[in-house]
């Protein structure tokens, strides 16, 4: 019944009282949002807490929902704001990267290959993928978020800019830095 509906139509249906529409929407986005949070927090317990908060915000914001943007942009903007609050509450250093976006202060460049995982062993694709995740998690928070919004949220640069409250050029710059570092890191392993 809800299969062919767009995300926005599902959210409007939920606003009008269709609980099944919310469930369809939730099934579409639950894994992507969760991974976005998990990579950003690096901690499953914290990701669980944020994940629940964000979806409850969606539930509570249903009355005022209007289709002003893609649902995914709206969802990840809520997630971004919640994440910033989370960083502030815990005094995490990640918050600095959203303000200054320090390009060379990230840990990827300094990330050494694990001693027991020499390039020869990492040629296996699974191991290579795991190393990619490790390097993503080592990116500065703002760059990491931009990469995750692109991959998990499938957002355009404009949408990433709208979700994170920056202009398009800043979003583009962050994504470029992120991709370059990840490519460089993987090249080292090949």
């Amino acid at each position: 019944m809800h299969e062919g509906m767009s995300d926005e139509a599902l959210m409007l249906a939920y606003r009008d009282g269709d609980a099944g529409a919310f469930e369809a929407l939730y099934r579409r986005w639950r894994s992507r949002l969760y991974r976005y949070l998990l990579r950003q927090c690096g901690n499953a317990a914290e990701a669980d807490e944020l994940f629940q908060d964000i979806w409850l915000k969606v539930v509570n914001a249903r009355r005022g929902y209007e289709v002003a943007a893609k649902f995914s942009t709206w969802l990840f903007r809520i997630a971004h704001n919640r994440l910033i609050d989370h960083y502030r509450a815990r005094g995490r250093a990640e918050i600095a990267s959203f303000d200054d976006d320090p390009d060379d202060a990230d840990a990827v460049a300094a990330l050494p290959a694990r001693p027991h995982e020499q390039p020869e062993a990492l040629l296996e694709r699974k191991a290579l993928a795991e190393e990619l995740v490790r390097r993503i998690e080592a990116l500065p928070a703002a760059q990491r978020e931009t990469f995750l919004l692109s991959e998990e949220g499938e957002l355009t640069l404009e949408e990433i800019a709208a979700a994170t409250g920056v202009n398009r050029e800043t979003a583009k710059s962050r994504l470029r830095y992120a991709l370059n570092k990840l490519r460089a890191g993987l090249k080292e392993l090949r």
């Binding site: 639950r30 894994s31 694709r125 993928a129 990619l132 994504l175």
Partner: peptide, 19 residues
């Protein structure tokens, strides 16, 4: 314009994590 298909494919293969 910044899409890296190889990187994206590798990321999706590694994308574990479910609520």
């Amino acid at each position: 314009e910044l899409r890296d298909e190889r990187l994206s494919r590798l990321y999706r293969e590694s994308a574990a994590g479910e609520p």
